[in-house]
């Protein structure tokens, strides 16, 4: 239950025995309590978040995500230093890239469009895949379950943590992009892709909305990763499987002969976040995307629950 005393940066097995012994003692004591105070329910999530965020692996992932907009920004800046337009005016490269030189805010959209197909879901896959299998691999899972919290609650906490990471990762990209964009390029009124103009404040609002939609687009992968994570006791295997599935789905989505199944692939509508930059906003694909993510979350979330609550926990 309480993991505050466990060194959060610790992932390996070194020293775990000692720590877990202490943990067992505490949790056995706690298991006599029948009801868990509300404050402590929250603390399970908080502990979980703290543990996840203090891992070097998590910080490294966030660092890589923050670096993408910096790279894109500098590359565009260098390329357009002589007054040319990004992408050579041919419309190549990630969406919105030709607009960055006119308005730094577009770097946010470009960075999200560049990271959404791979970097972001990969980071989420690593966190989600590690959620249960990582604990099992490190031998800490059974101690977590000694607590009266119950498996369902532990699973929900793990999923909530992963979702929080989705949001955090997206915001890291967006904020980094906004900072770089503001430093390297002018800001101000912007032109939507429909050719109408909106004020900078409204543009910022849309950027925030887009970040939220991008974060929500990742919930499907997160649920899938969590399910895979309940299947194995090896954290690495779960991460690799989740990222492998992600790549497979991305490839399937590119094969025109399979277009009958495309609408059901979780990555198919990901780029629909760009529809928020149309005037008026085109909701059809956005709604499809969010509905599909909810479906994946429901299916793989409940599958993870079915698996996890009936699984033999041996480690």
């Amino acid at each position: 239950m309480s993991r505050a005393d466990l060194d959060p940066a610790q992932e390996g097995t070194g020293g775990t025995a000692q720590e877990s012994a202490g943990r067992t003692a505490r949790t056995t004591q706690e298991s006599t309590e029948q009801r868990i105070p509300l404050a402590r329910r929250g603390s399970l999530l908080l502990n979980e978040l703290r543990t996840t965020l203090r891992r070097w692996r998590t910080l490294a992932l966030l660092g890589v995500l923050a670096a993408v907009p910096v790279l894109v920004g500098i590359a565009v800046r260098i390329e357009t230093g002589d007054g040319g337009s990004a992408g050579g005016g041919t419309g190549e490269g990630p969406a919105f890239i030709s607009q960055i030189t006119n308005n730094g805010l577009f770097l946010v959209f470009t960075a999200l469009a560049a990271t959404l197909p791979f970097f972001l879901p990969m980071a989420v896959g690593v966190i989600a895949g590690d959620a249960i299998a990582g604990e099992a691999g490190a031998g800490t899972l059974r101690y977590l379950l000694v607590a009266p919290a119950g498996r369902t609650r532990l699973l929900l906490t793990k999923y909530a943590t992963t979702m929080a990471f989705c949001l955090l990762a997206t915001l890291v990209v967006a904020v980094s992009a906004l900072t770089v964009g503001a430093l390297l390029f002018p800001l101000g009124e912007l032109t939507t892709i429909s050719g109408t103009r909106i004020s900078f404040t409204e543009g910022l609002g849309r950027a925030l909305l887009i970040a939220l939609v991008v974060a929500a687009s990742l919930t499907g992968v997160a649920a899938l990763g969590l399910f895979v994570s309940t299947l194995t006791n090896s954290g690495i295997a779960a991460m690799a499987t989740t990222v492998g599935l992600l790549i497979t789905v991305q490839i399937l989505d590119q094969i025109p002969q399979l277009d009958a199944i495309h609408p059901y692939l979780f990555s198919h509508h990901w780029l629909s976040f760009a529809d928020l930059m149309r005037e008026p906003v085109y909701w059809d694909d956005l709604v499809k995307n969010l509905g599909l993510q909810a479906l994946y979350a429901a299916v793989f979330g409940s599958a993870a629950w079915a698996r996890f609550t009936t699984k033999d926990i041996t480690t």
């Binding site: 337009s85 992408g87 005016g89 041919t90 419309g91 969406a95 919105f96 030709s98 607009q99 006119n102 469009a113 032109t191 892709i193 429909s194 050719g195 780029l271 760009a274 149309r278």
Partner: peptide, 22 residues
């Protein structure tokens, strides 16, 4: 996909705008 081509006729002017290539 993440872009739009608009053809706008407003009074005297006819504008074509390709957001992909700006």
């Amino acid at each position: 996909k993440a872009s739009e081509y608009s053809l706008i006729h407003n009074g005297k002017d006819v504008w074509g705008y390709d957001s992909e290539t700006n």
